[in-house]
């Protein structure tokens, strides 16, 4: 393949060889190259610097760069593994790998735990869950009385915090999620199975031989 030169890839800070990224993730080389087409599009939507900043991430998710959102920000922060305020191509592929249908449940459970552990203490605390619940109510039409919010938190911690110490640790989370598998639905993007179909133009920019892909 490789019918068009893709020298421009070197302008992408953090660009990594698709063969290497494929070896580290569930994706094939062709799928990594298709993800690069998506990455190029998102990373050039506000500032064409080969990196995705939070504004571009929010714009891609909501079609509105001004929309602050606790949940999208949290996902961005977990994608931004180097804590630089931007996502490079390697970060992007490795993070999306978690959302692939073929990725292990263990990886998905670990990522989902970190998603809810807002202050990165290794525990999901009641205050964090309350903060997320209130953020959800703030962004939706849903109205709940304070007592109802507290009742939801009581029920949640009664079920999830099995040692009743007021916080959910990783082993409690693993058990809780095994009893409530629907909680992991957000951790799988069926779309990732068809990524080469969604971005067929990757073929024109491929640097890899068909045999390797």
């Amino acid at each position: 393949m490789g019918c068009v030169s893709s020298k421009g890839r070197r302008q992408f800070p953090g660009y990594e060889d698709p063969v290497f990224l494929a070896s580290q993730t569930t994706f094939s080389v062709s799928e990594v190259e298709a993800l690069f087409e998506l990455f190029k599009s998102i990373s050039s939507s506000v500032i064409d610097d080969g990196l995705i900043n939070k504004e571009e991430f929010l714009l891609a998710l909501f079609k509105n760069r001004k929309k602050e959102n606790l949940f999208a920000s949290r996902i961005f922060d977990l994608f931004d593994v180097k804590h630089r305020g931007v996502i490079d191509f390697g970060d992007f592929v490795r993070a999306l790998h978690i959302f692939h249908p073929n990725t292990s449940m263990e990886d998905k459970i670990n990522f989902s735990f970190r998603l809810y552990d807002l202050d990165n203490t290794g525990f999901i605390e009641r205050e964090e869950v309350k903060q997320m619940l209130l953020a959800l109510l703030g962004e939706s039409e849903m109205k709940l009385a304070d007592e109802t919010v507290e009742a939801i938190l009581d029920k949640t911690f009664l079920e999830a915090d099995t040692n009743q110490d007021g916080k959910i640790d990783m082993s409690e989370w693993q058990y809780f999620v095994s009893k409530n598998p629907s909680l992991l639905r957000i951790m799988t993007l069926p779309y990732l199975r068809d990524i080469t179909t969604a971005f067929p133009s990757f073929v024109f920019y491929s640097e890899v031989d068909e045999a390797a892909a």
């Binding site: 998506l38 599009s41 998102i42 891609a60 998710l61 909501f62 079609k63 959102n69 606790l70 949940f71 999208a72 920000s73 949290r74 996902i75 959302f99 998603l115 809810y116 869950v129 997320m132 619940l133 953020a135 959800l136 962004e139 939706s140 109802t148 009742a151 939801i152 938190l153 009581d154 029920k155 949640t156 079920e159 999830a160 409530n180 629907s182 909680l183 639905r185 957000i186 993007l189 779309y191 990524i195 969604a198 971005f199």
Partner: peptide, 25 residues
């Protein structure tokens, strides 16, 4: 009325967690 849903079920419905939108180019 007893509460039937746990907090995480509600939270996981936030559109901010819907990464499908990333693929709508």
């Amino acid at each position: 009325k007893p509460v039937s849903m746990n907090a995480f079920e509600l939270i996981s419905r936030s559109p901010g967690f819907s990464l499908e939108n990333l693929f709508e180019r």
